[in-house]
Design a protein around this nucleic acid. Structure first.
Lengths: 233, 233
DNA sequence: TGAAGCTAAAATGTCAACAGTTTTTGGCGA
DNA sequence: TCGCCAAAAACTGTTGACATTTTAGCTTCA
């Protein structure tokens, strides 16, 4: 039940003074989910977490409510909440949403990014080419193409969705779908093509390429999932 | 400062027994924002609302946190929160997001809806033609084309966004943008065309038509807004 | 054996008081 | 009069206790 004993109190991990405890605990629970200490389907107990983090139930409750808001934790009054489970339907819905949002981000990028921004992104992509091999860890401080594309669009709502809620879910899927072949080599080519379309100021092509790219990632995930087959996307 | 004296306690409005107070208060604050009793930019005071609703600060705080989660209320630690203001940038971002999501919804509809569903929607649209005139109140229990299109797509995440967060914001815009000409007559034709494209099983056309429809609504809003001109969308 | 019903434990929901931070207020000096 | 600074007020953040509901375990009976 206990997530871990590595936190004496939440102050140990919390950095800035003046940051509310609820914010620190939000991040701590999120990390626990990321790292699999709170696996999908496990119950999220307010009192236990409060004891663990050395705070009262209030801040823990607030953090949980926030995670429920982005649908990472289930919510039903009086019923104990659980980390969401990752079924095929949820995955399909996630990828459909990504196709819509990341596609639109590319569309906007092709119209709004400056030439300098685009060139900078292209050179960063090429410099990070060695990261696009199967033996480099996926998450970390490496060049994150999708995040950069999203942030470049300048639409705070789209950025917030893609780099917040959806990104959390995607990370959990990656973490818990075992040894998925990540098709990194193909990804590099597709990323490069998308940037070319943006540089060519072709919003529709850029959007179409991004959608295909996300669709292929979805198919890849489903092909390596336990027998689930992907309905038309 | 006080929202209204019409609630003795929250129990008066709350319907079901066993429903948490925080849920009722969430709805109550949302209504207050809708009805303009909490106009954009006004501060949202926990203690005042708690006194108003006859409960302690806890449930009120939770309701506010939820509204902050969908970005209807600002959030910054220790700083008093306010109802979001409706500036041109926010509106542009809202409509861009709607173009992406409602477009995708149409795309999915054209592939997944059954013929019977489509025919039913068409006949409902035609039956409600008399509502598409300027003198019929916009909100109410009338036929809501956009909601129906969104719900038909079956993607819970997209539905949740369009009929939840974004719809709230849109309603507030409608409420506070004065006597906007709602171009209802044009809307009927455009809605009808979209349904034709869905019935013809043409996802790309349906998506394109919906995007244009939303774009025109955005332009209409900005044209009638105080001098703000809409950047390229 | 197992299924329905009851009881105790556990979990979530709510409250009132206290702590820390921000905002306001009032006075001071230039 | 205006800006600056300190103290007070107001507000948000946090806590521990209590209330309400669910959950788990036990008993009973067929």
């Amino acid at each position: 039940m206990t997530v871990d004993a590595q936190f004496e109190t939440i102050e140990a991990t919390g950095s800035e003074a003046g940051t509310p405890r609820s914010d620190m605990i939000y991040q701590a629970i999120l990390d626990a989910i990321y790292q699999g200490r709170l696996p999908p389907g496990s119950v999220v107990n307010e009192a236990a977490l409060a004891l663990e983090f050395g705070v009262s139930r209030g801040p823990v409750r607030e953090a949980i409510r926030r995670l429920q808001g982005i649908q990472l934790i289930t919510r039903e009054p009086y019923i104990k909440s659980r980390v969401v489970t990752l079924d095929a339907t949820t995955a399909r819905e996630l990828f459909e949403l990504r196709m819509a949002l990341e596609g639109m981000a590319c569309n906007i990028d092709a119209r709004r990014m400056s030439d300098a921004e685009i060139d900078g992104l292209i050179s960063e992509l090429e410099r990070s080419r060695h990261n696009y091999s199967a033996d480099v860890p996926g998450d970390g401080s490496v060049f994150d193409f999708h995040e950069r594309i999203a942030r470049a669009c300048g639409n705070a709502r789209i950025i917030n969705l893609l780099c917040g809620d959806l990104y959390h879910l995607l990370r959990i899927y990656r973490r818990h779908s075992g040894a998925i072949i990540e098709r990194k080599e193909e990804a590099y080519d597709e990323h490069w093509q998308i940037l070319r379309a943006i540089k060519a100021r072709d919003p529709q092509l850029a959007e179409s390429l991004m959608r295909s790219h996300v669709r292929r990632a979805a198919r890849n995930l489903f092909d390596h999932l336990d027998g689930e087959n992907l309905p038309d996307i």
